[in-house]
Nucleic acid binder design. Structure first.
Lengths: 203, 203
DNA sequence: ACATTAATGACACTCAAGGTCAAAAAGATA
DNA sequence: TATCTTTTTGACCTTGAGTGTCATTAATGT
């Protein structure tokens, strides 16, 4: 469940008053405060003050405080779609999905510390755990569409939905374990949860 | 994911001012308003007015507006624990878990209409979808503990967590389909999602 | 200079959530 | 009966998220 760094916000036109901040600046300042003070204890006013901008400006950049930690998740989903699309068609479906999830979560190790911190914030803050469901739904949808495409079913049929939900379940389990163990490798954990599921069902 | 009707709220003592309302009364009035006006459009003041009670009283009975539709989920989880505990020990683990989930969701058909309405509200209202994650975590925990007990692992080990997450994934998929198809049987759907998962992984 | 464009900032409002405390309404007691 | 004790309610207040409105600001274009 990696998230891309927010790109520099591009102005929609060269006219008009220049933007006073960027998504990236807000995210960085907010994340800093979230980690030090805690998510709940940080107000939008705090964030605004940190970057010298009004509270109302922040709520224009992000639909809610809960959306700040996830950043530009939409772009990340585009990448995920692309990864799945590029999977060899002769690969068995379950293998393609699993490798897709693996590739999606294969980011350089030196990028991990901040990514881990971000995921830790998201996965341990109750308000963010709850809010993330809406993001997860989009993630599942990407898988469901891929499965639907390869099987000739519709995305909301039972099989595509099942695979989407189960893939998310495995990913979340892996992330949880990844956060708990400083030395663990995320790809290994993704393989391990899949192996656990297989052996569980095989009896 | 059935929810028990709220029991009559029992007074902690016979002394003191009698309660002006009950959990059941609040739930019924609230549900009525949620369905007709919509969840977001219903304020706590509206609910209080409907049963002749102050807004502050409602927030004493429920920690948040989001908690009202779920009702007394804790009791439901106790029942789930009991169901799993009563599974024959010689049943293969995967079979025991699956049957436990089936039994947990096996409620009389004539209770279904209101249960279906409640689940529809919960599963289609974004704020409730999000909030439900916290309930789901407890539900998964019940499964994880059972798996841990039967395998000698700890509840937060990878296998129990995986089975908990995947079981929830299958249940949610089934519920979604159950809501979409008026004539569908929930037990059949639970079997079907499990079958889909098995055949998917078997290739 | 002046018009145009686009973002900001100030202000107001609604609502959820939660803290505090006096008042209400019961049983218990003298 | 009058008073004490217990428990809940209701009124009041504060904070913070979210949202609508609108004048102001600061850029470009003419």
């Amino acid at each position: 469940m990696p998230t891309s760094p927010a790109p520099a916000t591009r102005r929609s036109s060269l006219r008009g008053r220049p933007a006073a901040t960027t998504h990236a600046e807000i995210e960085q300042a907010a994340f800093q405060l979230f980690v030090t003070r805690g998510f709940e204890a940080t107000t939008l006013d705090d964030i605004g003050e940190a970057i010298g901008v009004g509270r109302r400006t922040i709520t224009r950049y992000y639909p809610s405080k809960n959306d700040i930690p996830w950043g530009q998740f939409d772009r990340t989903l585009d990448a995920f779609r692309e990864i799945l699309r590029s999977m060899p068609a002769d690969l068995p479906l379950h293998e393609a999905v699993h490798r897709g999830v693996l590739a999606f979560n294969d980011f350089p190790a030196d990028a991990s510390p901040s990514h881990r911190d971000r995921m830790r914030l998201i996965l341990t803050t109750p308000a963010l755990q709850a809010h993330s469901v809406l993001r997860y739904a989009s993630w599942r949808e990407v898988i469901a569409r891929y499965v639907a495409e390869r099987t000739g079913l519709r995305p909301d049929d039972l099989l595509p939905q099942t695979i989407g939900q189960v893939s998310l379940a495995l990913a979340l389990t892996s992330y949880q374990a990844w956060l708990a163990d400083e030395d663990a490798s995320l790809p290994d954990l993704l393989d391990a949860t899949m192996a656990h599921l297989r052996s569980h069902l095989a009896n």
